[in-house]
Design a binder for these strands. Structure first.
Lengths: 134, 134
DNA sequence: CTGAATCCGGTTCGATACTG
DNA sequence: CAGTATCGAACCGGATTCAG
C-alpha cells in the first residue's frame, strides 16, 4: 500500500509541484521581464519596449503568471489614462540573483557553446543513415 | 547608419544569441536530464526511467540539444546490444550548480508560491467585470 | 494607456510502431 | 537497447479588435 508512489518533493516525479512553477519562471519572456524589473519598476509599455520581440499578449500573460506566483506586484495608479506599474516583490528580489547567475553564465559561455554547435553541425553524429537517400 | 540596431550581447535584443541557448538549458526536460546527469552518468533507458513523464522522443531530442551545446557527452559502447552512456562535460559540470541553485530555490519556496497562487485565484484582480453581466 | 478576448496558423508534444 | 518515423492532439504565440 503506502508505496513510493511519487514524492511530491522529488523533482523527478511527474507530478512534482516544482515543475510548473519552474516553468513559469524560466519561460521565454519571464526571464526577460524579471531581469528588467530587477533593474527598476516598469510600466507595461516600458516593459513592452524593453523586452525586444515580445507581443502585448505574451507580456500580459507572463506578468499575470509572475504576479500570481507572488514574484511581481501590479500597482494601479487611477490617473487618466490609467497607469500600471510592475515591480518585484521581496520574493522576486530573492529569486532574480539566481536567474541572473544563470543568464550571465550562458552569456559568458555563448562563444564556446556556439563553437560546440558549429562543430556538431559540421559532423552530425549518426547521420540520417536510415533516412531515405532518395 | 551604424545605429544601436541591436547589440547581440544584450539579452533584451530580439536576436540575442543567448536566448536560444538559454531556452535549451531551461527547457522542461533539460533541467531534469542535467540534474540526473549531475548525480552520475546515465544510460538512455536509465534517464528515461529517472525523469518521470518524459517520452523517448523528448528525451532523445533534449539530449541531442544538450550534446550539441557541448554540455553533455554521448558515449557509445559497441557491445551487443549497443550501449549508450551520457555524462556531463566540463562545461556541463560548470553549469549545473547554477541550475540547481534555481531549482532548489523554487523547491524551498514552493509552499509560499502556492499560497500566493491560491490567494490570487481566490480573488482574481480585475475580474471579468467587463464580462457581460447579461 | 492597459490590457482582455478572439481567431488561427504553426510548432511542439506524446503515444505508438518500427528499425539498426 | 537506443533511438527514429509518423500522426493526431495540444499548446504557443502573433495580429487584430475592443473595452475600461
Amino acid at each position: 500500500m503506502g508505496e513510493p508512489v511519487t514524492d511530491p518533493s522529488d523533482v523527478f516525479a511527474p507530478d512534482c509541484p516544482v515543475r510548473p512553477i519552474y516553468g513559469d519562471i524560466t519561460s521565454r519572456w519571464a526571464m526577460l521581464a524579471l531581469a528588467a524589473l530587477d533593474e527598476r519598476p516598469h510600466r507595461f509599455s516600458q516593459l513592452a519596449g524593453r523586452v525586444g520581440g515580445v507581443s502585448e499578449k505574451m507580456l500580459s500573460q507572463t506578468l499575470r503568471a509572475l504576479t500570481r506566483d507572488g514574484l511581481v506586484t501590479r500597482i494601479v495608479t487611477p490617473t487618466v489614462p490609467i497607469q500600471v506599474t510592475y515591480e518585484l516583490t521581496a520574493l522576486g528580489t530573492e529569486l532574480t540573483p539566481r536567474l541572473r547567475s544563470l543568464v550571465t553564465w550562458v552569456a559568458d559561455h555563448t562563444p564556446v557553446i556556439q563553437a560546440a554547435q558549429t562543430a556538431y553541425d559540421a559532423d552530425p553524429p549518426v547521420p540520417p543513415a536510415t533516412a531515405n537517400r532518395r
